[in-house]
Design a protein around this nucleic acid. Structure first.
Length: 171
DNA sequence: CCAGTGATCAGG
DNA sequence: CTGATCACTGGA
């Protein structure tokens, strides 16, 4: 399978969050070591109206990358320890992204950032060009489950309950 | 259950 | 400058 470098990432965050399930996340290191993972859990964060999306609190230096064209990474530190790995989706000036919550070898967004050795320098990294991280194609996964997103109690009942978390079904 | 740990942002 | 907040995790 080969790197995805077309307009795959320009679809909206909810569609992309589903489409990324089962895709291969590749991490390549300077010493030549290459490791591949299967994306197993994602969440969509969709624009300024979505009270769970960082862009709902305004366009700031931190959220600037959310406004980029789909295909670049949005990386930020949370709770002083964990690097969250997101893939920006949609068109330019439309702030939306997909959070990578779990891989086949690791579960939880904080651990994903750790196992991939993600740091702030990955913010804005282009998955279609990068030599250190990219996505490879794989067959579309159709057996997935939807559920509410995690850790967003502040977002209000509507946005808290909307089922924008997607996980590959175990069967 | 809850502490850890530090960037970020609004407010003074 | 200060203080609150936070898309989490690991260990009682």
């Amino acid at each position: 399978m080969s790197r995805i470098s077309d307009n795959f990432f320009q679809q909206d965050a909810v569609s992309l969050a589903k489409a990324l399930l089962g895709k291969i996340l590749v991490r390549s290191y300077p010493d030549g070591f290459v490791e591949k993972f299967i994306i197993t859990e994602t969440e969509a964060y969709m624009g300024t109206e979505d009270l769970a999306c960082h862009a709902s609190k305004g366009r700031t230096p931190r959220t600037e990358t959310l406004y980029a064209e789909g295909g670049v990474l949005y990386v930020y530190l949370i709770y002083g320890m964990y690097q969250m790995l997101n893939i920006v989706s949609g068109n330019i000036n439309h702030p939306e992204a997909v959070l990578i919550r779990s891989l086949n070898k690791t579960k939880g967004p904080g651990r994903v950032g750790k196992i991939l050795e993600i740091d702030r320098s990955f913010n804005g990294e282009d998955l279609r060009q990068s030599k250190r991280i990219w996505i490879e194609d794989a067959p579309l996964v159709t057996n997935y489950e939807s559920s509410p997103r995690i850790g967003i109690d502040y977002a209000g009942e509507y946005w808290k309950n909307i089922p924008w978390r997607f996980t590959i079904s175990s069967d």
